[in-house]
Simulated assay, not measured.
Amino acid sequence: MNYTLHQLQIFLKIAEKQSITKASEELYLTQPAVSIQLKNFQSQFPIPLTEIVGRKLFVTDFGREIAHSAERILNEVEGINYKMQSFRGKLAGRLKISVVSTGKYVMPYFLSGFMKSNTGVDLIMDVTNKARVVEGLENNEVDFALVSVLPDHLKLNKIDLMKNVLYLVGNPNYFEKILLSKSMFVKDTPLIFREQGSATRLAMESYLKGRQIQVGKRIELTSNEAVKQAVMAGLGCSVMPLIGIKNELGNGDLNIYPKKGLPIQTTWNLVWLKSKKLSPVASSFLDYLGKEKERIIHEDFSWYEKY
C-alpha cells in the first residue's frame, strides 16, 4: 500500500462529515480534489470504504474501521511533531477550548498573546451553545470551557475572566416610544429569545419571571448574531450581552433602554474539571492568564465602562 498522510486526513474528514462537499469546505479544498484523493485512497483497498445510496454518501463498516485507524495514525504523527518541538525547548501541543456562542467576543482576546508567543501550540476552539459546552466538559473532550453560568452538577476549577453585562436593546426607529413608556414592557412588543440551552435565554427568562412580566409575542432564534440582526430589523427587542453589540451601539443601530432590574450582570468563567490532568500547554495558558488577565481587560475591554 502507498497511501499518504494527506489521503488519511481527507478520508477521516469525509468519514466525520459524511459528505465530500462538507469535507472539502472544512479542508479548504475543491470538491474535485477531494473526490480524486478519495478515489486514489479507495483504489488501495479491495473492500469499499464508502457507498452512495440515493444521492447520499455513507461510510461502510470497513470504512469506519479505516477512519479510526487513520485518526490514530494522524494523532501519532502530530504527537511526534510536538515532541520534536519540545526537545528543542519550544512549548508544543494542542489547546482545546469550548466556548458558549457569545463568548466568541471574549475568548480570542485572552488567547491572542499566548498563541503569538507559542507558535508550536495548535488551537481548537469550538463555539456552540451552553448545553453542548457542558457536554464537552462532561466527556473530557476539552481542556477548558468558557461559560457565564456554572453547571452545578460538575466539580470544576475556575478563573473569573471578566464581567458579562446584559441590557434591554431595540432599534430606536421602531421601539423608542414603546420602550421609554412607563410600563415595563408592552404586550404587543415582541421579545426575541435565544434557543433552549442558551445561558443568555436563561438570564432573560429569570429576569422576566422574577419581575412577573407577562410576555405577549415571542420569537426564538438559534444564535446571538441572528437575534442581533432581528432586533436591528425591528422584529422585536431583546436582552442581549453588551459584549456582542459594541459596533451597533456606536453606529446607532441599537439603543440600550434602562429598565428596573437591568442590566443583568454575570461573570465569564474559564472552567475545567477538577479531576483533569492538565497538559503542559494547558498549564502554561493558565499561568499566562494569571499574569496578563488584568492587562487584557484594561486594553481591550475598557469601553465597557462607557455603558
Rank of each mutant, 00 (worst) to 15 (best):
A33S: 14
R72F: 09
P190D: 03
E248M: 04
S86E: 12
G120R: 04
I243Y: 04
N129H: 03
D126C: 12
V149K: 10
K217W: 00
S43A: 14
L161E: 08
S98Y: 08
R94M: 06
M162C: 09
V149R: 00
N255F: 03
L8P: 00
A145D: 02
N164C: 11
I159H: 00
L208E: 01
T50H: 14
A226P: 12
I243N: 02
N140S: 15
T266S: 07
K17E: 11
W272K: 05
Q7K: 06
A145Y: 05
K83D: 12
D188E: 15
S302W: 05
S101M: 14
S35T: 13
V215P: 03
I213A: 11
S24A: 15
G103S: 14
S35A: 15
N164L: 13
G93R: 00
N139P: 01
L49M: 03
L286E: 03
K293D: 10
V169P: 03
G261Y: 00
M125S: 12
L111K: 15
D143R: 08
E225Q: 15
Q265D: 11
K177L: 07
M240Q: 01
V53G: 02
Q18C: 10
K228A: 14
E25F: 03
Y167C: 07
M162H: 11
P263T: 01
D300I: 13
V281K: 03
F45C: 10
S112C: 06
I159Y: 00
T222N: 14
G236V: 05
Y174C: 11
V215C: 00
V59Q: 05
F285I: 03
R94T: 04
G170R: 06
E176G: 06
E16Y: 10
A33F: 07
